[in-house]
Design a protein around this nucleic acid. Structure first.
Lengths: 218, 218
DNA sequence: TCTTTCACCGATAGTAGTATCGGTGAATCG
DNA sequence: CGATTCACCGATACTACTATCGGTGAAAGA
């Protein structure tokens, strides 16, 4: 057996990580309403009062949770962009733009669920974390679209590119939830649909001027 | 002045409606975490204990909220479908498929915000309400797409149509939030983008067999 | 080895929300 | 015009959670 001869600070660090992990698990299956110091401490295996040895209060723990998993997400995003650059063809690149985040989300479903909740809950302390993550994803997409030749030089097309990126982001999240919940199983098929959505939207960006449609007189 | 000479049951009914309204207002700007009988009663202008004259408990109130606004939503959906049938051309019809729900949401932003939260919060008593509403919207879309000629006869294309409808739904909600938050202002431009997204996705459905793509060998 | 430090413990004060209860006066009913 | 009903009230019991405090033993440091 591993007779864990830990130093004091190692042991403290381990407990701290356990608390963060416990918080994430509870957030995932009960939401923020169910997150109490009593439960966190029980799951982490310490007394409720000992929670305060590690964190000033619950808010402080949530800040730590954001930092911990925020760094994890940023790292996987960097890795994703690196791998995407190695794609053999534009076609595969386009696919990978969606494949990589989609697979990342499916690997760690808790984070998406928690982020989506926090994004809409006005009382959530994780709101800022969720918002920053969403922006990071959008930048990832924007960069990849730019690499595919969809640059936006004038103001209206810039705004449209932004809308398209935001939309594709939401679509990725929605379908990821589908996979997490088991309603969807074939990742390749989901990628087909995502690519189809995006190629429709991107066709809009290629328009010569900003308004390739009949203008309504309102 | 309106010297409100109400009968007893009329007065009770009015108080009940005030409670439901108060609950919605609090849900909107504080979320379910902020919804307490104390606040509801205060906003409605009665004593906290009197809350229980009208509802068995908080859960019971939320049931009533769901019913009240659920009926309102279903009614506006029926109206929307009726109006869409009158569109002069397929092109306008396609646009109206998005315009009508989008405008409805922008008119009553609280309901979308509350629904989106409830949809993701595992502890939310409004979850079922939100889920049923989402399904109703999806059916609305599916019916409109079918009317545009996008019918699904075989199993794979049926599944795809479902994915497309779900995706378009999410996109509508996302952009509606953009309008509510003031980031987006031009509804016609949003409709352009929605139509572009959908025409890309729908092209997938027109494919002769279910797999108009290279299959990966994984 | 003796002292100090400190992660963790149990107990508990404080706070916020839920739900019940008996009382009151005005509407309703006979 | 009594008698009754009942929407609403204030007071309060109860519950759940947060955060603090003093005590303890084992690790760290002298």
């Amino acid at each position: 057996m591993s007779s864990t001869p830990l130093t004091r600070s190692e042991a403290k660090d381990r407990t701290r990580r356990r608390l963060i992990r416990a918080a994430l698990a509870i957030l995932d299956d009960e939401g923020e309403a169910g997150l109490t110091t009593v439960k966190i401490a029980r799951v982490a295996g310490i007394a409720q009062s000992s929670f305060y040895v590690h964190f000033k209060d619950k808010q402080d723990l949530l800040r730590a949770v954001s930092e911990h998993y925020g760094e994890q997400l940023r790292a996987s995003m960097r890795e994703a962009r690196r791998r995407a650059r190695e794609a053999p063809s534009d076609r595969e690149r386009h696919r990978d733009t969606f494949r990589i985040p989609l697979e990342a989300i499916i690997r760690h479903p808790e984070l998406l669920r928690i982020r989506m909740r926090a994004l809409h809950d006005p009382s959530s302390p994780l709101k800022e974390f969720a918002a920053r993550t969403a922006i990071a994803y959008r930048d990832h997409l924007a960069a990849d679209l730019a690499a595919l030749g969809y640059t936006a030089d004038d103001e209206p097309s810039r705004r449209r590119l932004e809308m398209v990126a935001e939309g594709l982001n939401t679509l990725t999240n929605t379908f990821a939830v589908g996979h997490i919940e088991g309603r969807l199983t074939d990742v390749e098929e989901t990628l087909d649909v995502l690519v189809a959505f995006s190629s429709g939207a991107l066709r809009l960006l290629k328009g010569r001027d900003g308004h390739p449609r009949e203008r309504r007189t309102d």
